[in-house]
Write a protein that binds this DNA or RNA. Structure first.
Length: 811
DNA sequence: CCGTGCAAAAAACTT
DNA sequence: TTTTGCACGG
């Protein structure tokens, strides 16, 4: 098909794909709407991505907008890339020139262009949370602020909260009570932090949004450039915007006043005027999409009022409700509806589908988190044998710490998996070191980066030398980097002096070519001259070999970046790395099961979803109990998890959970009983737990009192939603005790790992497994260290095992 | 300045 | 259970 083109002198308009094809009436209305502001309330799985992409395509196809006039904000870079692809798929190459990106990426792009306006330069560094914390740590130490009870994390979150509300030091100081010494000290910390960022030519994550808003408000003529340019602004996941992001949208959709517009268009080369009869430029058209039931980022400052009060904020707006779900079976939707209905103060909304009930939801209670993990692994095996691809299955959990048990069992069961987020590649110390080199090269004003690498690899520069250099810099009111160059003035030892001069020369040399050279070449030069990798390889620490490999991997990534972006500079690379989201490294073609937190799961969908750890204390999480609106937000999180599933949903929990090294009793989550009994098929219910091996079925959804609850010390959070806690709580308490000295339970699964060397198994062999007992090998795939045996156990059923590390012995 | 060893603290979610 | 901080001797 010939891609349609947009242009005035076209003689041939190819038949465009019908953009409204297959859409329901509400969806069509959303695509077709033209006007100042549109709110699409899109329930989970209601096809909002489809609507958004078609809406953009429609704007372009009808020539209501040029690509360059469109700004679409998504939640992750992956979502942005997908949206771009889909728009291009619909209307062809004309999609080039659109801005489709996250809030943060869009702001960086604007700030890099405009930084010179307010005391920064375009090569500013982006401080990630760890960088901010490192800086805050130094400041707290310097000001002796820990005496006032300030910790790094308390200061970091307070500053973040203030910035998300667009408060700066001055506005904080205006409202602070200076009779309170703690507030005075905090103001001092905040002031120092702000000054240090400015000096370092750096922005933290929150600044990226906040400073862009400040820029627009302080410089109307700068704002006007973007207000004039973007005629159509579309924001996805609007329920998770915070005040700063909301303000950014407000600024971008503000009309340009006549005199500013006149001045602007008198400037360089604007082909056609956007000014209306009054001489001003009307505000851009705004489309926002969201679902208040999926608001899960309050902790990051997200304000649900942004979406709830949209109609008041933007008068004359149109609201469209999308309720038909195209993703999940009715059973899954009924569960989701039932759960979310317990949140009061929400707009009534009921998802429905026409695909039918589907399978029941499966529930499972394990004795331990390993037992739970084993259940998940087994079910994944069954689904896979039934023809489902690993990539269409996912396991969600509340906290990253839960991955350990899952990983241990998955490895043992030879299930290919991938963990999204968690300890990310770029958070490893050696990678941060190398990135600090690149940052120091790109932004010579950044002392944080420089300090990090000054003695990595070891070159005999200790705290004393560093302090001397810093003093020299302060005295001469210059950058730390300049002092490095002038180290001979300091009268340090010859060895140290030479080492510092060497480092200075290496960095300066790289900085010279920072605009032109390829990232990979810069990095290769740095690594070679500093002997970074060699130092790691020479080390006696066995982990350093892996670290060296990680650095090589990073080098490979810079090369890959170079092929992907032939024009890409070091600055582009650093920006991209700073702004990757957890869901961004999701690879659809990986052929692995995906493991991620419930937060990361937002916006994704899978044929089969496993929700692990549905327990009090975990979901809802302990720490949410004290927060206003905490339990309601946790319920939304549960709701988000449920609604990711297309065909199959598994809810699992464990009776005991190990954390902080010791074992705790875990109670079933209060949210479980909000799901109608008939929707769940409990393979092993929480009520069955007792020390005799568990054969007493007990309805999990039994209403409080029906089974005669006796208030034991182990209530389920005191919410009034508790389960009948009498007998099962006793059993659970006993279970906890027993878990320590591994008792007589059948099917208990531990985390035992063993190195079996090159144990070889053949079909027909009898083996004994520490957890599953005896069994017969029914098939083996011989792959050396990766050999997988399928074993029919006498009592525990059929399992796939990775031979090398499973706790087995041949009989 | 460097490496070792022991004590102490810490573990929600994320751009 | 794992990571980080501090004191010590070389």
């Amino acid at each position: 098909m010939v891609p349609p083109t947009i242009g005035r002198d076209m003689t041939f308009i190819p038949t465009a794909p019908d953009l409204l094809d297959g859409l329901n009436p509400q969806q069509r209305q959303a695509v077709d709407y033209r006007g100042p502001s549109l709110l699409i309330l899109a329930g989970a799985g209601s096809g909002k991505t489809s609507v958004l992409t078609r809406r953009i395509a429609s704007l372009l196809q009808n020539q209501d907008a040029w690509p360059s006039q469109i700004l679409a904000i998504t939640f992750t870079n992956k979502a942005a890339a997908e949206m771009r692809d889909r728009v291009e798929g619909l209307i062809g190459q004309a999609a080039e020139g659109m801005w489709i990106s996250t809030f943060h990426s869009a702001c960086v792009r604007i700030l890099r262009r405009e930084a010179e306006n307010f005391g920064f330069t375009k090569n500013f560094t982006i401080y990630d949370s760890a960088d901010s914390r490192a800086l805050i740590k130094r400041i707290i130490k310097e000001l002796d602020a820990d005496a006032f009870g300030f910790t790094v994390s308390s200061v970091a979150s307070k500053i973040s909260r203030l910035k998300n509300e667009l408060n700066d030091v001055e506005s904080y100081a205006r409202n602070a009570n200076f009779n309170d010494p703690a507030e005075r000290v905090f103001a001092e910390i905040f002031r120092t932090y702000t000054r240090e960022l400015q000096r370092a030519n750096a922005f933290d994550f929150d600044d990226l949004i906040g400073q862009t808003v400040y820029l627009f408000r302080a410089f109307p003529q700068v704002a006007a450039v973007y207000q004039r340019r973007f005629r159509h602004i579309l924001v996805d996941e609007y329920q998770d915007t915070n005040h700063a992001q909301y303000s950014l949208i407000r600024e971008l959709t503000r009309p340009v006043e006549a005199h500013v517009a006149a001045e602007l268009e008198a400037g360089e080369g604007y082909r056609s005027s956007q000014r209306d009869a009054t001489g001003g430029i009307p505000g851009a058209s705004l489309t926002v999409v969201g679902d208040s039931d999926q608001s899960i980022y309050a902790f990051r400052g997200a304000d649900i009022r942004n979406i709830v009060e949209f109609e008041r904020d933007f008068p004359n707006s149109t609201v469209i409700l999308l309720e038909q779900n195209y993703r999940s079976t009715q059973n899954i939707l009924s569960a989701a509806n039932a759960v979310i209905a317990n949140n009061f103060d929400r707009k009534e909304k009921n998802l429905f589908t026409t695909v039918g009930d589907g399978e029941k939801i499966v529930g499972f209670t394990g004795y331990s988190q390993h037992d739970e993990a084993q259940f998940i692994a087994d079910e994944i095996g069954v689904l896979h044998e039934g023809g489902m691809d690993y990539k269409d299955m996912a396991v969600f959990y509340r906290t990253n710490a839960q991955t350990r048990a899952l990983e241990e069992i998955f490895i043992r069961s030879a299930i290919p998996y991938r963990v999204l987020g968690g300890t990310k590649f770029y958070e490893r110390a050696e990678i941060k070191d190398v990135m600090a080199y690149l940052t120091a090269v790109a932004n010579p004003a950044d002392p944080l980066a420089l300090r990090r690498i000054m003695n990595v690899p070891k070159r005999g520069i200790g705290p004393a030398t560093e302090a001397a250099l810093q003093n020299h810099a302060d005295k001469n009111e210059q950058m730390l980097r300049d002092s490095l160059r002038q180290v001979d003035e300091l009268g340090l030892g010859p060895k140290v002096t030479a080492a510092i001069q060497g480092l200075a020369a290496t960095l300066d040399q790289a900085t010279l070519v920072v605009e032109t050279a390829k990232v990979a070449d810069i990095l290769e030069g740095l690594l070679k001259q500093t002997g970074f990798v060699d130092a790691l390889r020479a080390s006696r620490d066995p982990q350093d070999e892996a670290r060296a490999e990680n650095v090589e991997e990073l080098l490979a990534q810079t090369k890959e970046f170079g092929t992907r972006n032939p024009e890409g500079t070091l600055l582009d690379f650093l920006t991209e790395v700073s702004l990757v989201a957890a869901a961004d490294d999701l690879d659809d073609s990986s052929g692995t099961v995906s493991l991620m937190t419930l937060h990361t799961a937002k916006g994704l969908e899978y044929d089969a979803v496993f929700l692990a750890g549905v327990e009090e204390g975990l979901l809802p999480h302990q720490m949410s109990a004290g927060e206003p609106g905490g339990p309601a937000e946790e319920r939304r999180l549960f709701y988000v998890g449920i609604t990711r599933a297309r065909q199959r949903l598994y809810l699992s929990l464990a009776m005991t959970r190990a954390q902080f090294g010791d074992v705790n009793v875990a109670m079933p989550s209060r949210y479980l009983q909000e799901i109608p009994t008939e929707l769940i098929d409990w393979r092993q219910s929480p009520g069955m737990a007792n020390s005799r091996g568990g054969t007493q079925p007990r309805a999990i959804n039994a209403r409080r009192g029906e089974l005669g609850s006796s208030g034991s010390g182990l209530s389920s959070g005191g919410s009034g939603y508790g389960f009948s806690t009498g007998p099962s709580a006793t059993a659970l308490a006993r279970a906890a005790k027993n878990a320590e000295n591994k008792t007589q339970w059948a099917n208990r699964v531990t985390s035992t790992v063993r190195d079996n060397g090159d144990l070889k198994l053949a079909v027909g062999d009898r083996i004994r497994h520490d957890d599953f007992g005896e069994g017969r090998v029914s098939s083996v795939t011989d792959n050396g260290a990766k050999s997988i045996a399928e074993v029919q156990f006498d009592t525990a059923g059929r399992k796939r095992l990775l031979v090398k590390i499973s706790p087995i012995e041949k009989l």
